[in-house]
């Protein structure tokens, strides 16, 4: 069955289909023409064509041998050193199938690998460089150890430019017979903030209503997605209802099953954006969030630490209402 999820249905299959990222794509095409490439490192925020570019490059490079000479792994699910010594090494050291210059291994979310695993990976990359080329993909370059960075050609993927998101959304809308109004398009671009995946997912979710897509509909629908509850939780605590804020937190943690780190990440981006909170309070809240984030890394209990964050919010908010 062909995939009905639009992020996959409309994912470019070849480098030619990628309409933006002109400079990057041009260089990747040179690799294909010359039938060679170094190890690559793609860095940038989510939804910026990194994985797509890697897949297209591999497909173009390997042609009909793609399925024999290509492996894709996601380091978030396979992050330990055993994966590097096992699956990655096995793939890298195996013989090159005839008809291709080398095999290609895409390692997505490589910044989620432990540093031990990265050290092991570094040796594997060196040792098997003749048989296998690596494309590492990450959100945060800083989390990739320097020896790996220095072994790769680095490509930075900034957030998507508005005109390309617009182009893609309009193309999909036309193809799917969706009545996408201008203000609806504007709203989707606004909420997705340069994240193509988010933009396309939002479009599809809103389109499911089978109504003309307007500004209001987009925000209405997104109100149902969970991160909005993080915002609600923050506002509730700040406006002085500690009990209700705790209830929202518990619902996020235990009913919706949102990871504490995702709650913190969302709280962070909300606090940067929320207008209702004065700057000096935002600074305190960012410090508090950073501290909690660090404590969670250390292994502290998320429920206790997040309660403390709510207590901080509650206290800061109350000084205005009293």
């Amino acid at each position: 069955m062909s995939l009905e999820i639009w992020v996959e249905k409309y994912r470019p299959k070849t480098l030619d289909e990628i309409v933006d990222r002109e400079e990057i794509v041009a260089r990747l095409k040179e690799f294909v023409e010359n039938k060679t490439m170094p190890h690559l490192l793609f860095a940038g925020p989510p939804g910026t064509t990194k994985t797509t570019a890697a897949l297209c490059l591999a497909r173009d490079m390997l042609g009909k041998h793609f399925s024999d000479a290509f492996l894709e792994l996601n380091a978030s699910d396979a992050r330990g050193i055993d994966v590097v010594r096992g699956r990655i090494k096995n793939f890298a050291e195996a013989k090159i199938p005839s008809g291709v210059p080398f095999k290609i291994l895409v390692l997505d979310e490589a910044d989620n690998m432990t540093s031990d695993a990265q050290q092991a990976l570094r040796r594997t990359m060196e040792k098997y460089t003749r048989t296998c080329r690596f494309i590492l993909i990450c959100n945060y370059l800083g989390k990739i150890i320097e020896p790996i960075q220095s072994r790769c050609a680095l490509f930075r993927f900034p957030p998507m430019e508005k005109k390309y998101v617009e182009l893609m959304l309009r193309r999909i809308a036309e193809n799917e017979n969706v009545d996408l109004r201008d203000d609806g398009l504007e709203a989707i671009i606004e909420v997705s903030q340069g994240d193509m995946r988010k933009a396309i997912n939002t479009l599809q979710a809103v389109a499911a209503f089978e109504k003309p897509i307007t500004y209001d509909l987009v925000y209405d629908v997104l109100g149902k997605a969970s991160p909005v509850e993080v915002k609600q939780m923050i506002e509730t605590a700040y406006k002085g209802n500690f009990e209700e804020a705790r209830r929202l937190l518990n619902s996020l943690l235990y009913e919706k099953g949102i990871a504490p780190s995702d709650i913190i990440a969302e709280a962070y981006s909300q606090i940067l954006r929320m207008d209702g909170i004065p700057h000096e309070d935002r600074i305190k809240l960012i410090k508090a969030l950073g501290e909690i984030d660090y404590r969670l890394v250390e292994g502290s209990s998320p429920d206790i630490q997040l309660n403390m964050f709510l207590a901080e919010l509650y206290l800061l908010g109350r000084k205005y209402s009293v």
């Binding site: 999820i5 599809q204 969970s226």
Partner: peptide, 18 residues
């Protein structure tokens, strides 16, 4: 969808629910 398990939970499931 070329995502991690967590990524699927974050990027696909909420929209699918809608």
């Amino acid at each position: 969808c070329h995502l991690s398990t967590k990524g699927a939970m974050r990027d696909i499931v909420p929209y699918l629910k809608i």
